[in-house]
């Protein structure tokens, strides 16, 4: 037990270290700019006076390490500073949008994970069958499509031609859960389509890999029923790779959400991020990037830890 706690502690430390490194990149990226940020954003036409004021506002007069510490302290306490474009508190801007984005991502994940695992396992079991080949072609096609293509096709059919769902996902906190789900269905479906394809292909590959193991052949030669072979012999060993696949694709969702939110005008973090990039509202972008990166790292960390605690080699060392 001691042993495994040590490994987990190491992973956690590594995760924290990565987060730290990323926070450095996010804040010090600004330093790479020739001249400085104030000048770059205001452009050539700005008077020295406006540049000076703007610089003070951004805190560019302070040495970089102090600015970093301020920023880090603010991120930790929930005070993320002020937006450049509309002078509002960033935490205020982000609050509701973050939960909207998590809602959309969670909704998509809830459909995608069971669907992808089932399809992946079935394709692995009946590999090289017609079913497998069909699903292979379909998924390869669907991972090749840009998200906005899928999104517009769905809009064209289900929102415009059939009129079943709204083409714009206007949601707010006053809506009932049912209403929210209804309005979020198309964006969630877009995300699901792309995500399922990736996840299903990886699941299939890892199960096929596993089914080639000598212990699976041994189980067959022991006369174990096929279903039991899958459930008792393959799945416990497949758990770690499958969790990794899920984490990897949830992380993928985190990114996919940005484009989907823009297409469906969904009031989430992704849209805020894109808007802020075009307005060059650096503080907001930094805060959003940090949140996205943290979610991404936490998901991967979670997968890592699951694969450690399900591995008997690590649980019960020699």
């Amino acid at each position: 037990m001691q042993h495994i706690l040590k490994i987990i502690a190491q992973r956690l430390a590594l995760g924290l270290l990565t987060l730290f490194a990323i926070s450095l990149i996010i804040t010090f990226g600004v330093e790479l700019l020739p001249g400085d940020l104030a000048q770059a954003i205001l452009g050539q036409g700005a008077t020295p006076e406006t540049v000076r004021v703007f610089r003070l506002e951004l805190g560019l007069d302070k040495p970089p390490y102090l600015r970093y510490l301020d920023w880090l302290g603010g991120m930790a306490t929930g005070d993320m500073g002020v937006s450049l474009s509309n002078k509002r508190q960033i935490s205020e801007l982000i609050g509701m949008r973050l939960s909207n984005t998590l809602f959309l991502g969670g909704f998509a994940a809830l459909i995608a994970i069971p669907l992808a695992l089932t399809l992946g396992i079935l394709a692995a079991l009946y590999r090289n069958s017609l079913f497998d080949r069909t699903i292979n072609t379909v998924t390869i096609t669907s991972i090749s499509f840009p998200e906005f293509f899928i999104a517009y096709v769905l809009i064209l059919f289900f929102a415009i031609n059939l009129g079943w769902f709204p083409g714009i996902s206007n949601i707010s906190s006053e809506l009932s859960l049912g209403d929210r789900l209804y309005r979020t269905l198309l964006p969630a479906a877009t995300l699901t389509l792309v995500c399922v394809a990736h996840m299903m292909r990886m699941t299939r590959a890892s199960i096929i890999n596993l089914l080639a193991s000598p212990y699976i052949e041994m189980a067959r030669l022991k006369g174990i029923k096929p279903m039991r072979i899958i459930m008792r012999h393959a799945l416990p060993n497949a758990l770690a790779p499958i969790v990794n696949v899920i984490a990897l694709n949830l992380a993928y969702l985190v990114v996919g959400v940005v484009i989907v939110e823009v297409v469906f005008v969904y009031p989430g973090l992704g849209q805020l991020l894109v808007d802020s990039v075009s307005k060059r509202d650096v503080p907001v972008v930094q805060a959003c990037s940090m949140i996205f990166a943290s979610v991404y790292i936490l998901l991967n960390l979670f997968a890592d830890i699951v694969s450690i605690i399900t591995n008997p080699r690590l649980l019960y060392p020699r």
């Binding site: 000598p214 052949e217 041994m218 030669l221």
Partner: peptide
């Protein structure tokens, strides 16, 4: 009819 494989290390399921 039962079977004894070449490598027991590979033929025993590591998860049980």
């Amino acid at each position: 009819i039962s079977y004894v494989a070449q490598s027991a290390a590979a033929a025993f399921n590591p998860a049980h």
